[in-house]
Write a protein that binds this DNA or RNA. Structure first.
Length: 551
RNA sequence: GGCCCAUUAGUCAAGCGGCUAAGACGUCGCCCUCUCACGGCGAAGGCAUGGGUUCGAUUCCCGUAUGGGUCACCA
């Protein structure tokens, strides 16, 4: 068989040689130990949390080693491509502060190892495919979908491995005449790898995360080039990662089963194998005692945009993802509460080999910890940004008087043990709403143990003594005085010591005032709330409640 | 079904032949307290299973079970 002739027949338009192409991709000049990684999504929808997790890994590993991280778009499947998905990816990645050194950007590319969209690299793949045919390592296959189905059926009946391989491949040893004939008949074809593997052979392979794993040799004549001349993932992976100088391929472990194919393709091409890092998938509960991969289709929380919409801060999500990435991150965070996550040394060795449940409850705890450390100014700005899009009515009220809002937000903030009232920007409305007349609940529920007339009397009495200019201590003394006057204990302890001697305690009296002024059972420090609210508003609300309780 | 991977409390997990088996989230209780949110203290809860190897196995080996992944001209 004259493989040169075959190659010309199959890919007549390809005039470039592998050498021509290699020249365009000179070795990178990087410091010792620098890692080159890439995030390579296919633009088939939204950015998945698992994708963000992976690309966080890519980014951290590259940058902490003074390496390079690339954004490569794997748009080789035109059937599944979603228009605008690439831009959406870039936008979301930006929102999470993931910065790429090279790769696709809106409207083009950045970097010298492009193009970074696989759809623009057809000539490159075809050149290498042609070379493989020339060397007798690949061949055109004219099998139709129906024929392949038929083969699979027979294989199933005989309980054999499904796929195109060995004697099942009618075209791997076809004569040049047969190929010419098929070509003349304008039959569609793909280019397949002529596998030399034997699945009864196993060998050891070291994955940077999984450790030593058992691999079965590939014997499938995998499709390299689809009938439209565009490569499959497997072939594009080998060609691109070789040319772009990727040192570490970080990808989900759903790729593990096809690793043998990739090894064989790299070998056929004469390329050095990169290091592989197969990360475990993020899981979620599916029923009472079953877990499954977080699904793009079924789970709304798989979409990172879901978190933005729900009011999660991007930092918190990243922070949580870091705890899943490296189990020692939490300890590090406790020791370095204010450090940027970029200072944390990510280690491949600390990565989990098995999948972690995406724990939204734990995420929430992280959220609270992240937000409680922010200044009132930051909370104000970030909540405004969120509300502007997702809760415009609240946004208007919230931002009407910025200083007023920030004053309220600063209550219990900036101390060593800050309040943790909310974890999401969307919760700020519930937390702060009562500060605005538009959201203040006039029909707050008082403690049912006490009569409305008693509460009314207490409020009237308090109104008499209330002085806006009181210091906190005096303010509280007055509440205690009112308590005593109505037969309530001045101190909680007194009450606890002999509950029968009192109607209640100072806490109950405070709660009357609290409900009157905030419309809620709970609130931050009442003294500061009243200070922030202002004299007029306090008096107005007290009067309103006295009136309401009179009827 | 074949192949591959995994298995420490409800969850995330330290552990890498000898420990009363860390820690975090969650749950529960107590304390603090003007309520709540914090904070402090404490509690319940775990090495899937059967064989080996070994003076000794959570740790090493084999089997079993369970869970997961994957078997496309999708990535």
């Amino acid at each position: 068989m004259n493989y040169n002739e075959l190659a010309e027949l199959v890919l007549p338009n390809i005039k470039t040689t592998p050498e021509d192409i290699e020249k365009r991709y000179p070795p990178r000049e990087l410091p010792e130990g620098a890692k080159v990684t890439r995030f390579a999504p296919s633009p088939t929808g939204f950015l998945h949390v698992g994708g963000l997790f992976g690309c966080l890994t890519d980014e951290r590993l590259a940058h902490q080693s003074n390496g390079v991280v690339i954004l490569r778009i794997e748009d080789t499947d035109s059937k599944r491509e979603v228009t605008g998905a690439t831009e959406l990816f870039i936008e979301n990645l930006n929102h999470y502060g993931i910065h790429f050194d090279e790769g696709a950007v809106v409207g083009g590319d950045k970097g010298n190892y492009g193009p970074y969209r696989q759809s623009e690299r057809a000539e490159i793949y075809q050149t290498f495919a042609k070379q493989l045919i020339r060397e007798g390592k690949a061949y055109p296959c004219f099998l139709t979908a129906e024929e392949i189905d038929e083969i699979r059926k027979q294989q199933e009946e005989k309980k054999l491995l499904p796929g195109i391989y060995g004697e099942w491949s009618k075209w791997r040893n076809a004569s040049i005449e047969e190929v010419k004939e098929a070509l003349a008949a304008k039959k569609e074809f793909v280019v397949r790898l002529k596998s030399t593997g034997d699945p009864s052979n196993h060998f050891k392979f070291t994955d940077m995360i999984k450790g030593t794993i058992d691999v079965t040799e590939n014997n499938i004549d995998e499709v390299l080039l689809k009938s439209d001349g565009i490569p499959t993932y497997h072939f594009a992976h080998a060609v691109d990662d070789h040319l772009m100088g990727t040192t570490h391929v970080i990808r989900g472990d759903e790729w593990l089963p096809s690793l043998p194919k990739h090894i064989e393709i790299f070998n056929a091409l004469g390329f050095k194998l990169p290091k592989y890092c197969h990360t475990a998938a993020l899981l979620k509960m599916d029923g009472p005692d079953s877990k499954r991969k977080l699904s793009k289709r079924k789970d709304p929380e798989a979409d990172v945009a879901f978190f933005t919409k729900e009011g999660y801060s991007s930092e918190a999500l990243l922070e949580y993802l870091m705890t899943l990435l490296n189990s020692n991150f939490e300890d590090w965070r406790m020791a370095n509460p204010d450090a940027s996550i970029t200072e944390f040394p990510v280690s491949l060795k600390k990565m989990s080999v098995s999948g972690a449940l995406f724990d939204i409850v734990k995420l929430y705890d992280v959220c609270k910890n992240v937000l409680c450390r922010k200044s009132a100014e930051e909370i104000y700005n970030e909540t405004s940004d969120w509300a502007k899009i997702y809760s415009p009515d609240f946004y208007r009220v919230f931002t009407e008087n910025p200083d007023y809002t920030k004053n309220f937000l600063s209550i219990g903030r900036g101390t060593a043990k800050p309040r943790k009232d909310f974890g999401l920007y969307s919760e700020v409305q519930e937390y702060s709403g009562f500060m605005f007349d538009e959201y203040y609940n006039e029909n707050g529920e008082y403690d049912e143990r006490f009569d409305n007339s008693l509460i009314k009397d207490v409020l009237e009495q308090y109104l008499k003594v209330y002085d806006y200019n009181d210091e906190q201590q005096d303010w509280f003394e007055k509440i205690k005085d009112v308590s005593e006057k109505f037969g309530f204990a001045r101190e909680t302890k007194q009450y606890k010591a002999s509950p029968e001697s009192f109607k209640g305690h100072v806490g109950d009296i405070s709660s009357f005032i609290r409900v009157a002024i905030t419309g809620k059972q709970n609130s931050p420090d009442m003294y500061q709330v009243m200070k922030t609210l202002g004299y007029d508003k306090v008096v107005e609300r007290l009067n309103k409640q006295i009136k309401r309780l009179s009827v």
